[in-house]
Design a binder for these strands. Structure first.
Lengths: 212, 212
DNA sequence: AGAGTAGGTTACCACGGGTAGGTTACTTCC
DNA sequence: GGAAGTAACCTACCCGTGGTAACCTACTCT
């Protein structure tokens, strides 16, 4: 029975490392997304965890390290989800749609750490940007790998990589847009990308007269 | 060993404000893109300009202000170029292609300040991110405005805004990719986006058998 | 020549990332 | 129980850097 003692000497409770790390990550994620990376101070995070600053450095090495750690878990989870969902599709079309839907769903629901990086104002550190780039590359690879099996040596097949880049960039941007438009579901968002990928503008082009 | 006054006072040249500002912007752009925003110090920039730090603050207010100033000119120039080029097209297809080509050309040639913001590791400040968002919004608007005149109330027409977001995001991402692939010309890059927009993947989808 | 001002400086502050080195709670093994 | 060992934890500090106050001086204009 060592409940909190009176003022003079706080009976500092010791917490195992794994537990503390979880606490720290939780608080850090909160503070970073509240204030933005730059405006957040390690002192504040430490204080809110109820621990002193050197502990943060002991466990995460640096402010950047803490940021990265906040995202790593979200990042690997995102890749896992999109990959497994995409692979359930039998045709390339299904695969792409599945992957896109999973992506939008993830961002909408579990993606606080993710949006922390992606959202305006949040980024700062070179390593954080590298994190984002790494994740984009993962998804580009996923798309290339998924579609290349099917792609003939046609116009798209020869340019699969840059095309995948466009899809990844467009999807990411649309995800940001979706934040301001919560009425748009993950499926609808995925459909929008599919619409484009499948030739949405061709219809528009064809419909317009050739006037100049 | 007394004060540094011993040296004959250098005949400190005075430089008019406009000129100094240009110098400062030039140096700042250089330093920022060399070191990245965070790793750049105002002291170093001031020293390289050959002026003392308070002058930077006098003219640009803050570190962020200096960064923003570096990009503002590139940003307005980019919008001008894409807009005027796009408007030369008679059909929506031409307009889009023209605009895209102008974008890629600009990024490749004049866009140092631009890439400074966009490239990995460069960003940091909230205002810088806001800058990027503003520029993206400008281009989204441009696309929406250009195409809405032609768009019927079809699937695309009803979703022109999010579709434009996807195009903007995909284009931006492809521009980054093009940096690593200088052999790809602006026209080719624009063609890639057009290919997608006009239904590049439809062909791939159609070509593949109905099983994986 | 002397006033007014744009251009310029030195010297400083405070905040925040990061660290050295010591202290205390908990475990282990006799 | 108690010494020994270790993991968790702290206080106190350093110092780089963004930002500022207060003062100075080259140039212009009448």
């Amino acid at each position: 029975m060592t409940t909190s003692r009176s003022a003079p000497t706080a009976p500092r409770r010791r917490v195992p490392r794994a537990e503390r790390e979880r606490q720290m990550l939780e608080v850090a994620e909160e503070v970073f997304s509240e204030r933005g990376y730059l405006a957040s101070s390690m002192d504040e995070i430490a204080e809110r965890v109820g621990v002193s600053k050197p502990m943060l450095y002991e466990y995460f090495g640096s402010k950047e390290g803490l940021l990265i750690a906040c995202t790593q878990q979200a990042r690997s989870e995102l890749l896992r989800v999109t990959t497994t969902t995409a692979l359930k599709g039998g045709t390339p079309e299904e695969m792409l749609r599945n992957g896109l839907t999973a992506y939008f769903e993830f961002i909408q629901t579990h993606g606080r750490a993710w949006l922390l990086l992606r959202t305006e104002g949040a980024f700062a550190s070179p390593s954080a940007a590298a994190e984002m780039e790494a994740s984009r590359a993962e998804h580009t690879n996923l798309i290339v790998a998924s579609l290349s099996r099917f792609a003939p040596s046609e116009s798209v097949g020869a340019n699969l990589e840059p095309v995948a880049e466009v899809i990844v960039g467009g999807t990411e941007r649309l995800a940001v847009w979706c934040q301001q438009h919560p009425e748009v579901s993950a499926e609808q968002a995925a459909d929008l990308v599919m619409l484009l990928a499948r030739g949405g503008l061709a219809e528009l082009f064809a419909a317009s007269p050739n006037r100049g």
